[in-house]
């Protein structure tokens, strides 16, 4: 099944995230990723929801019923700029240090903090690039990791 990306413009009101996620779980829909943040318009937030559902039409219709949901656009994956951010804390020691830093820099990850026995990297990119980086760091011992959820914009509208 291919992924479907919904860009959901909502009113920035208390409880709107709860309404959206409750609607999704109540109808038994699964989501791969959900992110939310403010937009350039005051009082409006945007959610990016990534799902693999055939039932995406129903998701759209049910979400559209929410009073605080203003507009839902399904993004065309071929014309979509998509990105995600990752913070990854990996353990280092004298032996691994050079190799970790080399691999990170080849992956275009930025080191944002380094301690005696750990380093934190930040990487922005497609979900695949993030997955790859995670796999690359795994042998060194990932202490903690967080991903920001995928965000997307259509490049030509």
């Amino acid at each position: 099944m291919s992924e479907r990306i919904l860009s959901v413009l909502v009113e920035d009101k208390p409880g709107v995230l709860a309404r959206v996620s409750s609607t999704i779980s109540r109808r038994g829909f699964n989501i791969n990723s959900l992110s939310v943040g403010p937009t350039n318009i005051e009082g409006r937030s945007k959610m990016t929801i990534v799902t693999e559902l055939d039932a995406v039409e129903q998701v759209k219709k049910q979400l559209n019923k929410l009073v605080n949901v203003i507009k839902i656009v399904e993004l065309d994956p071929n014309m979509t700029i998509e990105t995600e951010v990752l913070l990854l804390k990996v353990s280092i020691n004298k032996e691994s240090q050079t190799s970790v830093i080399e691999k990170a820099s080849l992956s275009n990850a930025t080191s944002v903090d380094v301690g005696q026995d750990f380093a934190i990297f930040e990487l922005t990119g497609s979900s695949k690039e993030l997955d790859k980086f995670e796999a690359l760091m795994k042998p060194f011992g990932i202490i903690e990791m967080v991903r920001g959820g995928r965000i997307a914009l259509q490049s030509n509208l």
């Binding site: 208390p14 409880g15 709860a18 309404r19 409750s22």
Partner: peptide, 14 residues
């Protein structure tokens, strides 16, 4: 109440 009634109402307010 707002949380409890979210899935039982068309809309709700606090």
């Amino acid at each position: 109440t707002v949380g409890l009634s979210m899935a039982a109402t068309k809309h709700n307010y606090l």
